[in-house]
Amino acid sequence: MERRNFLRGSVVGAGALAFSGSLWHGAASFAAPAQNAAGPYGSLLAADANGIQLPAGFTSQVVARTGQVVPGTSYTWHRAPDGGACFADGTGWIYVSNSEASSSSGGGASMIRFNSGGTPVAASRILSGTNNNCAGGKTPWNTWLSCEETSTGRVWETYPFGGTAVARPAMGRFQHEAAAADPVRQVVYLTEDQSDGCLYRFVPTTWGNLSAGQLQVLVAGTATSGSFTWANVPDPDGSPTATRNQVSGAKRFNGGEGLHYANDAVWFTTKGDNRVWQLNLSSNTYELAYDDGLVNPGPAPLTGVDNITGSSAGDLYVAEDGGNMEICMITPDDKISVFLRINGQSSSEITGPAFTPAGNRLYFSSQRGTSGSSTGGITYCVTGPFRT
Rank of each mutant, 00 (worst) to 15 (best):
G221C: 07
G221Y: 06
G221H: 11
T222Q: 12
T222G: 13
T224H: 07
S225H: 10
G226H: 04
F228N: 05
A231S: 15
N232Y: 00
N232H: 00
V233C: 01
P234N: 04
P234F: 02
D235A: 13
P236N: 08
P236I: 09
D237E: 06
D237P: 00
D237M: 09
S239I: 11
P240M: 11
T241P: 00
R244E: 13
N245V: 00
N245K: 02
Q246S: 05
V247N: 03
G249K: 08
G249M: 10
E257L: 09
G258R: 11
L259E: 07
H260Q: 14
H260S: 08
Y261N: 10
Y261W: 15
A262T: 13
A262Y: 04
N263D: 12
N263A: 12
D264W: 03
A265E: 12
A265K: 07
A265D: 13
W267Q: 05
F268K: 08
T269K: 02
T270V: 14
T270M: 05
T270F: 03
K271A: 12
N274C: 05
N274T: 06
R275K: 15
V276K: 11
W277K: 10
W277A: 08
Q278T: 05
Q278S: 09
N280F: 00
N280M: 05
L281H: 03
S282C: 02
S283H: 04
T285Y: 05
L288Y: 03
D292R: 03
D292L: 01
G293W: 01
G293S: 15
L294W: 01
V295L: 14
V295C: 13
P297K: 03
A300D: 05
P301W: 03
P301N: 07
L302N: 03
L302C: 02
G304C: 03
D306P: 05
N307I: 09
I308L: 12
I308C: 05
S311E: 06
A313K: 03
D315S: 11
V318S: 09
A319R: 05
E320T: 07
E320N: 07
D321N: 15
D321C: 10
G322M: 09
G322I: 10
G323W: 01
N324H: 06
E326R: 15
E326A: 14
I327K: 08
C328L: 03
M329Q: 14
I330W: 05
P332Y: 11
P332W: 11
D333Y: 07
D333K: 04
D333H: 08
D333N: 14
K335C: 09
I336L: 11
S337N: 11
S337C: 10
S337M: 06
V338E: 04
R341S: 05
R341D: 07
R341P: 07
N343W: 00
Q345A: 14
Q345L: 04
S346N: 14
S346A: 15
S346F: 08
S347K: 04
S347L: 11
E349P: 04
I350K: 00
G352C: 10
P353I: 12
P353L: 12
F355L: 08
F355R: 11
T356F: 06
P357Q: 10
